[in-house]
Design a protein around this nucleic acid. Structure first.
Lengths: 157, 157
DNA sequence: ATCAATGCAAATAATTTGCAAAAAG
DNA sequence: CTTTTTGCAAATTATTTGCATTGAT
């Protein structure tokens, strides 16, 4: 799948639904508009809250039922950061191979892409008898800034 | 922390407990012996089962209470593969920077280490203003063997 | 003795599901 | 009309926790 802008991502998802004989409902529209209207990672609960700002009638159940469709379509990615709830990342359509650095101090998540790392992943996997389907790289790090200044400008609380 | 064999890992953990004023109980011994007596990844439930083979009196609660101590000590690592339960990896003391390839066909997990990838991770993180604390790289892949033979020799069911 | 650790059973909390009513095609 | 989708509330399930008792030091 070639990189896709947000607008096309939404359209792709609608086609994905149609292809499976699934229907376009106002609730799904609100959810999908929310997902592809942000660059931020979100939880199911946040998605519910934001979607309700667009359409009061969106329920938690519908959010939880739509999320698997979004990940199945390959346009959104589920991420586990070891918390007791999952995060979702709407940027995979635009940047299919990005990785994450999570700041231990402020919990900010920075995305990056590295051609070189992808290449190495492919080489190593091949050597081990696999071809890469997906990759997830999560780095947790400490802010250099925090060490110097005693505080991280991104800290949220 | 320099790479550590399993025997030393157990000892290190005991020292970790002592250092925190925590006690050596028969249940903890059974759990720790189990953890450092295997190379396999395991779930909390499996750890309970295996530990009970050594000491009937081990309870689920004690397993769940010991697991955070093990991860906090840095000798065991918690892993999220997107299932609804967590896996634990007892090989971090011996191989502190290893990554995982998960076979989509048989769910087998292969470990590998790459100096080159570690180096790149450090470079990129530095450029972004972080120093690496931990890294987790998970690749999911398809077995070349499966594609050729129609079956993966590692498939379990 | 003292204080940490245990097992048990109840609590928690994210996610899932059954069902009757509502909406899409 | 027919079939999917919805909201609601109840169910599920891994993990956590309160408490009285037991065990380590």
């Amino acid at each position: 799948m070639p990189p896709l802008d947000k607008q096309s991502a939404k359209q792709k998802f609608m086609e994905f639904l149609a292809g499976k004989g699934l229907r376009t409902t106002s609730q799904r529209q609100a959810i999908v508009d929310t997902v592809f209207g942000t660059d931020k990672h979100f939880t199911a609960e946040q998605l519910l809250e934001w979607s309700r700002e667009r359409d009061q009638s969106v329920s938690r159940a519908t959010v939880y039922r739509t999320l698997p469709l979004l990940t199945e379509s390959g346009l959104v990615r589920e991420m586990d950061f070891g918390k007791d709830y999952k995060f979702y990342d709407p940027n995979y359509a635009e940047h299919p191979n990005h990785s994450h650095i999570i700041c231990q101090d402020c919990e900010k998540i920075v995305e990056f892409e590295s051609e070189k790392i992808s290449k190495l992943e492919n080489e190593i996997s091949q050597k081990l008898g696999f071809s890469v389907a997906t990759q997830r790289l999560q780095i947790t790090g400490t802010c250099e800034e925090l060490k110097k200044l005693g505080a991280c400008k991104n800290r949220m609380n």
